[in-house]
Design a protein around this nucleic acid. Structure first.
Lengths: 211, 211
DNA sequence: CTTGTAGTAGCACGGTCATGCTACATTGGC
DNA sequence: GCCAATGTAGCATGACCGTGCTACTACAAG
């Protein structure tokens, strides 16, 4: 069996090209032609690895979500046990973790832009709906897990409704992401991180201590 | 000069058809043909009122934002002076006002879905960028205005950074809208209203009083 | 009645698109 | 050398798209 190229790497290359096209011109511009050109391949070659345009799209959405999920899980594992940290450090660590979801640099900005395009497309494209639902649910699970950890270690107020706070924090992150991606101006990473931290601090017992 | 139809009403009809198509199948499906068919007109007729597809699109985005802005301004005027109300009533009134931005029923859900499609399109379509920027800015101004009114009447804590709180509340609303529009399940209006009210209540001095 | 205008309808063109399909080159196993 | 798998390239088709353009109708002013 002749094997000149690594098919997995090829697929990844094509998907990366699709992400670049999507970031630059929107998901609707990610045709087989444009993606093939961006990847430096012929349409025929691309179709050798993806049976159809539909196939390419669903694969792209899947791998986007996989990458994001993997990175978050890695970050969460790296974090280790919250008990080692002081309350202030816990807030900072949680903020950093959540900031991974925010488009603070060009890399994450691209990711979130592509992510948003896929999510919006999922509203009217049935084949995107299942992964989109998963993504939404996973985000909530992730946020809830983080809040639970903070809660267990006594970092948060005890009277909080964690279900409500999960929705609130998740919506906040979604909204910040949306704003940053849609506003062309230079992202203000420090502002968003400060906002996130302020939000978390407002959930702690010491809500009188400003700064 | 013969004038069988009201050209303004015709344009409105076509734009409404465009909104229906966009809500059902996404903005990318709003071609001249589909919109004309949805409006029960021929392509030639539609093109009599809109010189080009581009013209139709920009006009549609403009009128969407106009309608939304007009309704919010009306609501705000109806509200009158906050001083007439008790602190609890002020919170309730502010919540209701902000809820106008949320997709709580099918009408607002449709609006927000179309709005979102346009906003996301504005990321890569330069002709949508100006109105999109305006819309973002206007939302912040609106939220800020409401927070200012609450602040003036002493309904909020005095140590708040209103600029930060504006961003936070605007992001929260954006995030809630996004979630509701993208999740197919039946919207839970009461949950979102409760969440909004909880958020506002957390900005008041009496943050110990749960319910 | 004639003429011009508002409105309706749709044809024809050139473009992009996804896709089925064929042709061909390259390379390893036999 | 031969064959089959792997990979590359692209042609042909049919669909949809926006748009320039023409043809036609209805009506009002002259």
């Amino acid at each position: 069996m002749p094997r000149y190229v690594d098919p997995v790497a090829r697929r990844t290359d094509v998907i990366d090209a699709l992400f670049r096209v999507t970031e630059r011109d929107g998901l609707h511009s990610a045709s087989l032609r444009t993606v093939a050109e961006e990847a430096g391949l012929s349409i025929g070659s691309v179709r050798h690895y993806f049976a159809s345009h539909h196939d390419l799209m669903t694969f792209a959405m899947r791998s986007m979500l996989d990458r994001l999920g993997t990175r978050l899980r890695t970050r969460l594992d790296e974090l280790g046990d919250f008990r080692r940290l002081s309350p202030a450090e816990r807030l900072r660590a949680a903020t950093d973790l959540l900031a991974e979801l925010l488009p603070l640099d060009t890399r994450r900005r691209s990711e979130v832009a592509v992510f948003l395009d896929f999510m919006v497309a999922s509203r009217t494209d049935t084949s995107f709906q299942a992964p989109a639902q998963e993504a939404s649910a996973d985000e909530r699970v992730f946020v809830r897990l983080l809040l639970d950890r903070l809660h267990e270690t006594g970092t948060l107020r005890r009277d909080l409704d964690l279900t409500l706070e999960t929705e609130r924090l998740a919506a906040l992150i979604d909204g910040l992401s949306l704003t940053t991606v849609l506003r062309p101006g230079p992202a203000r990473p420090e502002d968003h991180v400060a906002l996130l931290e302020a939000h978390l601090r407002a959930l702690t017992p010491h809500d009188e201590t400003t700064d």
